[in-house]
């Protein structure tokens, strides 16, 4: 049986001499360095963290919650994201909104970001475009940091404000009640809208 030895010969470097090969490598480095110093070639390296790499707009990074034009949270606490989440990392506590036109809103909205697998299903499930995965990819932190993103954090954190800015205001059709709908008991003596002649 014939074998073809494809493994690197461990003796080869010694045979050729350490120094020689090191110098060849250093030469390549120096040439590239020189080219880049004199602007003959562009560098592929990003000067993190001074310079931030720009991912595609569609990058699915850390979540944020969108807002209504008046700045309130857009989420209606329908629980579809929490239901859909394969990692079960979304916790919502719903409550009665003080605004009668909204009815239901999240009192608490929390994402356990350590459990999140960034699948984006929450975004997909949302019927009102309230949760999105943003461009923010740098999420590192120290162990003592709180790793559960709260509603306020999802709505108001600086990174989102800086990167998303105005885009955090969702332009999707308003999901509030129509102005003409009042929350009073129907008056049996009154004509409803569109009933006139």
């Amino acid at each position: 049986m014939a074998y073809v030895n494809v493994s690197r010969d461990p003796e080869r470097n010694l045979k050729n001499g350490y120094l020689a090969t090191s110098l060849v490598g250093m030469g390549t480095t120096l040439v590239t360095f020189a080219k880049q110093v004199f602007g003959l070639e562009e560098s592929n390296t990003v000067q993190w963290p001074e310079v931030e790499y720009q991912y595609s707009e569609r990058f699915k990074g850390a979540h944020f919650l969108t807002k209504r034009p008046d700045g309130r949270v857009r989420c209606t606490a329908c629980f579809l994201c929490a239901t859909n989440c394969p990692a079960q990392c979304i916790t919502i506590v719903a409550g009665e909104s003080p605004d009668k036109g909204v009815e239901k809103y999240p009192v608490r909205f929390e994402i356990d970001i350590l459990r999140c697998v960034f699948c984006g299903y929450c975004e997909e499930a949302c019927p009102v475009d309230a949760i999105r995965m943003g461009p923010e990819y740098s999420m590192a932190g120290l162990a003592e940091r709180k790793w559960v993103y709260t509603k306020d954090y999802l709505l108001e954190r600086d990174a989102v404000k800086r990167k998303v800015g105005e885009k955090q205001i969702s332009k999707k059709d308003e999901n509030t009640k129509h102005d003409t709908v009042d929350s009073t008991l129907p008056n049996i003596h009154a004509h409803g809208p569109g009933h006139g002649h």
Partner: peptide
């Protein structure tokens, strides 16, 4: 759609 009163306390 026809709009009617919502969230009434009955």
């Amino acid at each position: 759609k026809v709009l009617k009163p919502k969230a009434l306390d009955v």
